[in-house]
């Protein structure tokens, strides 16, 4: 898939900027504290850490689905609680969020429409959206499954559809939650290559949650490890180590 920097909004400033942020679902029990985190255009950042530590919550906070308990979350120029405009942000949830009864094409077109049709009343696909949807499906090796309902696909294929939906959107920030799990080595390489190529060429950023630290290291420019530890349940500068690779 070829990226075209003219077609997406490129931010020279950090795409994501978190300052003194506490995240979680209860005000009295923040899951993670992040003193400072900036993610720049063209950068791939992986978040790793033990299960239940708050990796997905962090991603959902940046996606605007969960409000931060305190601090400032800025994504593509929009400071929480305001959100970036339509199509700027692409999200591959851990449970994918696909519509099970409809086809691969319908699911990918949702992303393509979000990215290439700025009207908030758009339900008819544009030709540009169709083009990007087809490109994204091809890049995920699913061109023979266009009309296949999602429920008939394997777990790995469904994960590729969710990734294609985000690629077709051509967002400025891709947030992916364990998007490589359930994939065999070859497919994983194919998906990673397509996503990485898009990020590098378009100047978008990729923020990925990955429980496998070695895989996270191999794909990311930067690895953010969230470690709650036994003594201090919250992330502080001492317990959260940001490792440059």
């Amino acid at each position: 898939m070829t990226g075209d920097s003219k077609e997406i909004e490129v931010y020279r400033n950090p795409i994501v900027r978190l300052l003194d942020v506490e995240i979680g679902y209860k005000k009295t029990e923040p899951l993670v504290k992040i003193p400072n985190l900036e993610i720049f255009p063209g950068e791939i950042v992986a978040i790793a850490g033990p299960s239940g530590v708050g990796k997905t919550t962090l991603l959902r906070t940046i996606a605007g689905l969960v409000r931060p308990i305190s601090g400032s979350v800025e994504v593509c120029g929009a400071v929480s609680p305001s959100k970036p405009s339509k199509g700027i942000l692409g999200y591959v949830p851990q449970r994918l969020g696909l519509i099970r009864h409809t086809s691969v094409m319908h699911n990918v077109m949702i992303g393509a429409n979000a990215g290439h049709n700025k009207s908030l009343w758009s339900i008819l696909p544009s030709s540009l959206a169709k083009k990007y949807a087809s490109e994204a499906i091809n890049s995920m090796g699913l061109s023979d499954k266009l009309r296949e309902p999602i429920r008939r696909l394997s777990g790995g294929q469904q994960r590729r559809v969710a990734t294609a939906r985000t690629l077709a959107q051509r967002p400025s920030l891709i947030m992916a939650d364990e998007f490589l799990s359930e994939l065999d080595e070859d497919t994983m390489d194919m998906v990673l290559t397509a996503v990485t190529q898009y990020v590098r060429q378009s100047g978008a950023a990729l923020l990925v949650v990955e429980h496998d630290v070695s895989r996270a290291k191999s794909m990311a420019d930067r690895l953010l490890v969230i470690d709650d530890g036994r003594v201090n349940p919250f992330i502080t500068e001492a317990t959260a180590m940001e490792v440059k690779i």
């Binding site: 949830p93 949702i110 947030m175």
Partner: peptide, 24 residues
């Protein structure tokens, strides 16, 4: 989860209803 994905993408309520909720 499809609603979360739609919300993160910035889809309006109208688009979410027609593209996500009704098909799902």
């Amino acid at each position: 989860t499809p609603l979360y994905a739609a919300e993160a993408m910035g889809l309006s309520r109208f688009e979410t209803a027609f593209q996500v909720v009704i098909p799902e």
